[in-house]
Structures are given as C-alpha cells and as structure tokens.
Amino acid sequence: MLEYVLKRVATMFVTLFAVVLLTFILMHSVPGGPFTAERKLPEQVERALIQKYKLDDPLYKQFFDYLKGLARLDLGPSFKYEGRTVNEFIREGFPLSARLGLLSVGFTLLTALPLGILSAVKNGKWQDILVMFIATLGITIPSFVIATALMYVFSFRLGWFPVFGVKKLNGYVLPVIALSGYSLSFVARLMRSSLLEVMGQDYIRTARSKGLSESAVIIKHALRNALIPVVTILGPTIAGLITGSFVIEKIFALPGMGVHFVTSIANRDYTAIMGITIFYATILVAMVFLVDIFYVMIDPRIKLGRES
C-alpha cells in the first residue's frame, strides 16, 4: 500500500509540475509582454513595472523564482491590482466556491446514486424513462442555460428564491442545482449503466441460482460491484464541482473564485490567471489521488504495491 501511495504521490507531482510549466509558458508567451496588451503605458511606468515583476530576468530564472514561490505556497502578486496577491484572491473567493462545490457534491451523490439505481432496477419502465430523460437534459444542456432557466422561472417568475447572492440560505438552492446538473446526470447515467451491466454478469446469475431474493441480489452482490466505476470518476467530478462554478457564480453574482478568475481573464491579469489555474489543477489532482486511494481500498483485486 505504502509503495502504491508513494508512487501515486510521485506521479501527482510530475503532473502538477507539467501543469505549472505549461501555464507558465503559455502566460509568458503573450506577444509583446503583459503590459502592452491593451492601452499603451508611459515608457517609464512600463519600465518600472517590468523591473518590479522582474520581467527582464531570463525566462528560466523567472520560472525558478515562481517555483520557489510555489514551494512557499505563494502564488505571487497580481499584475493588475497594486499591492494585492493572488493568494488573497483565493482566500477571498475560494471559501464560497468550496461551500457551493461541497453542497453540490452532496446533492449530486444523494440524488444521482438513488436515481441511477432506481432507473436500473426499473429498466425500461416509466421511472427509468423519466430519470433518463432528465439525465439526458442535464448532460446536454449547458450549465449556464440551466442556471438562467432556473433563475428565470424560480426567481423572476415564481419568486421562490432570491435572484442574487447567498445572504439567505435558500440563495444556495438554485446555484447548487445548476452546478450539479451535469455531474448529477452523468453519475446517474453511469450508475444505471454500471448496475445494468453488473446485473447481466455471470456472478449475479450465480447469486440468483442460490435462491437469493432479487433485492438481496442487488444489495449484497450487485451494488458494490456497480459502484466501482462510479468511484473512479468521483475524483474529477468532485474537483469539477469545487472548481467549475465560474459560470454559475457569474450568473448568480456570487463573489467566489470563479468570479475572480473571470475578472482576471477580462483584466488580462496574467499572474492571477496562472495562479488560479494552478490552484484549480492542484485541487483536481489531489481529488483524483484521494479517490484512487479509496478505490484501492474497496477493490480487493488491486493488490497492494501493484498498480491495477
């Protein structure tokens, strides 16, 4: 087990390094440098800025400085806002995004798994058709459309929920639903197809041939097997929910990470874009890592110290 964990930690760092390198290169290849992008700055101001951000250092040195910063968990200063750091942006925005994301994770799991199971058990019946219809909607309709539609109907037309903000607790309802829409549908579909596939396996027939009741077959034999593929996609799903809320935040005007990210993009605040991207990537990689470890623990077929 330890060997496996160490190996996974190593790959995790390789991946993160690649991400940092890639984002760094991308953000430093903006033609003409970051300060010439929009309006022209006075010569000496530009020079001062370049000095301040050490932009005239050779690129590799800048990169190492950046890495050193990262090692101290310091994402550096913002390019656009004097005296502010990227860390501050994250500290301001992330708690709300994380709250939104975790609520969505909970909502997704609590609804998607039962719905997927129901759908598989009632395969071909109206319950299945209904659930799969909704799941297809959730997969195909982009989240920003879901969000605006929900907002129009439930906030403007019916007035059930506040239009903006999360001052009241029910302000979370629509953003969470809109944010979960895709992952919920995806997990429900995966759960269904996985359970259906498992139900067609030989060992399920074996269990039935022993005289187990259908519910015992499902609970004791099918569910655990069917959950394995669901667990494997849980890492990216959770990370996606925690980090992927920028459109939702924009629509519901929630001051989370996503808003900072979109603003940074609009402002061409390169250090902020780079920092937030790396932060997102770290969360994602960490989630995938945790889920992988969990996966190894629930599947006895994966031997300790040996990869899948």
Binding site: D202, S209, D299, P300
Partner: peptide
C-alpha cells in the same frame, strides 16, 4: 447449478 465459466461466476468482491 455449476456454471460454464468459473472466472466470471464468482462475485469478485
């Protein structure tokens, strides 16, 4: 019953 394929007829978990 004893089934055809012992590799797939036992629940792996």
């Amino acid at each position: 019953m004893v089934f055809q394929d012992p590799m797939s007829s036992l629940n792996p978990l």
